[in-house]
Amino acid sequence: MLEHIELFFKSIFIDNMVFAVFLGMCSYLAVSKKVATAVGLGAAVIFVLAVTVPLNWLLDQYLLQEGALSWLGPEYADYNLSFLSFILFIATIATMVQLVEIVVERFSPALYNSLGIFLPLIAVNCAILGGSLFMQAREIPSLGLAFNYGVSSGIGWFLAILAIAAIREKIRYSNVPPPLRGLGITFIITGLMGIGFQSFGGMLTGGDESVAPVEETTVEVQQETDEKKNKEEIDEKSVSYNEVNIVQE
């Protein structure tokens, strides 16, 4: 139970899809002019993530991983099909989005009217494929946790697009320097919100070092090269340019 709660808050706040790993930025920027449409798209993202992440987890577990085929018989135990994961994941997502669209249209026309126009957009939303790829990269151990991960990262994305849409509705009345209007100021606000979200990094302490948060990966290589050169001094040095790490440790 505790790991569920931990993963839930971690995916919403610390590893927020938009602010920590920049996923789904295209639709985030394009559809965030009004709060109402932002809510529609956000809900559709939660929905599709909740369906596709567990599905891709099953695919990964029983088809793609190294040794995943051993349920077919011992002679299949050495197969490693993980290089096929991109194509299978995206095929699953495209199919599921189509299927969801058809089912929703048939059984709930009201929901279809509010979600429907966004569903085709979602097949190529990086947040959806990203959810499945991160699920695979972080080796999420059970189906329940995979479902949890899908829902909670969807909620994180929903929160982000809701917040930026509300800000953009207000900023229309402000006197923004002309060259920054529209796209420029949205980028900068998103950056500032991202810095705000980084402060959630201190929320969880202990026990999650093994699951390396993604925002660190870009820094890691640099750190490693430094570590080789001067092992003793790394501590004081990393303080100066690696606040992310420090906060999370």
Binding site: F19, A20, V21, F22, P177, P179, L180, L183, G184, I185, T186, F187, I188, T190, G191, L192, M193, G194, I195, Q198, E215, T218, V219, Y241, N242, E243, V244
Partner: peptide
């Protein structure tokens, strides 16, 4: 180094 800085740098490029 932190991820949000990338957004701000792109914002500044757009500005320029």
């Amino acid at each position: 180094i932190i991820p949000p800085a990338a957004l701000i740098v792109v914002g500044i490029i757009i500005w320029v």
